[in-house]
């Protein structure tokens, strides 16, 4: 088998195991390329039946409109069930205001909305498209990753994951996070998108965009959620997005790639990692992701 066949097979195995071992799984879906691949894999895993679980998006309110449109169109086309929970609702309920910073991040509040939704629907397994190559704390996480009652990940006490035997037993209130794409890299995802002819939001391909350039060189989309000062230089550049997160923390990369093949060639030449190129939220501290995961972040 080719390596992509192997990765696909492993992901399908994990999806079916999740459907078999858990009572109420859910697929987290954002409209980004990894979660679009997840949907594609689910179709294969459960063909010809519908998905045995709903999709859910934790919407920060800071998403790119292109990603949301794509999300809604895909769900409609597949006739699957999508749950949307808004981070804004959590913020209103708890009286939380956005940080008064240039790029106000809702990362910290997103985990709370996710945990509330897990409690609301009593989900016992949340499937996500996170990959180990994204970040060094993720590189340590199991495919089936246990979270305690408060959603916390304990990196020093993870369940052994031997062969393909999955211990899906949970104590009251615990839940499992499931990462079928654990062993995929950014390039693997693109090679798969290419091979399977998977459609993506237009954001991923080169387009003209109004951006401000941050002092450390990031190109941030001009939008109503960031505060623009008179000293900011606004430029229109040919860019694309390598990851699609919030508009407040995801940077565009200069690119002229308009096809998947061109993107793959561009990635093979690049010297900067996916999150390094695009995520200003990871740069706050060296253990940024580890800390957020311990608080219940995906």
């Amino acid at each position: 088998m080719d390596y992509l066949d192997y990765l696909e097979s492993e992901a399908i195995y994990v999806l079916r195991e999740t459907a078999a071992q858990f009572k109420r799984p859910v697929l987290l879906f954002s409209g980004g390329k990894d979660s679009i691949c997840m949907v594609h894999l689910c179709k294969k895993a459960f063909y010809p039946a519908k998905f045995p679980f709903p999709l859910m998006h934790i919407d920060t309110g800071h998403n790119f409109p292109e990603a949301l449109q794509f999300r809604d169109a895909l769900v409609k086309e597949m006739n699957e069930n999508l749950i949307v929970r808004m981070v804004e609702d959590t913020m209103i309920e708890k009286g939380i205001k956005d940080n008064d910073t240039k790029f106000p991040s809702r990362n910290a509040f997103q985990s709370q909305t996710l945990l509330d939704a897990i409690a609301e629907f009593q989900f016992d397994a949340c499937i996500g498209g996170a990959r180990r190559d994204e970040e060094k704390a993720r590189a340590k996480e199991r495919v089936f990753s246990l979270r305690d009652k408060t959603g916390k990940w304990d990196p020093n006490n993870q369940r052994p994951e031997v062969w393909n035997v999955v211990n899906g037993f949970l104590k009251e209130g615990e839940n499992m996070r499931v990462f079928p794409l654990s062993n995929w890299t950014e390039l693997d995802v693109w090679a798969y998108i290419d091979r399977e002819n998977i459609s993506l939001p237009s954001l991923y391909f080169s387009h003209d965009r109004e951006c401000i350039q941050t002092p450390d060189g990031y190109l941030m989309n001009v939008n109503e959620f960031i505060s623009i000062s008179p000293t900011d230089k606004i430029v229109t550049e040919k860019v694309r997005y390598r990851t699609v997160g919030d508009m407040t923390c995801t940077a565009a990369v200069p690119s002229t790639a308009i096809t998947v093949t061109e993107i793959i060639n561009e990635l093979k030449r690049t010297k900067v990692s996916e999150r390094g190129a695009t995520r200003i939220d990871d740069r706050i501290s060296d253990a940024g992701m580890e800390d957020r995961k311990k608080e219940g972040y995906f």
Binding site: R132, K140, P155, N156, N183, D286
Partner: peptide
């Protein structure tokens, strides 16, 4: 060695996957 405690201790505690 991706975890803070690993960097602090200078040892590997859990399996890290690299590609």
């Amino acid at each position: 060695d991706g975890l803070r405690s690993e960097r602090a201790l200078g040892i590997t505690i859990d399996v890290a996957y690299k590609y």
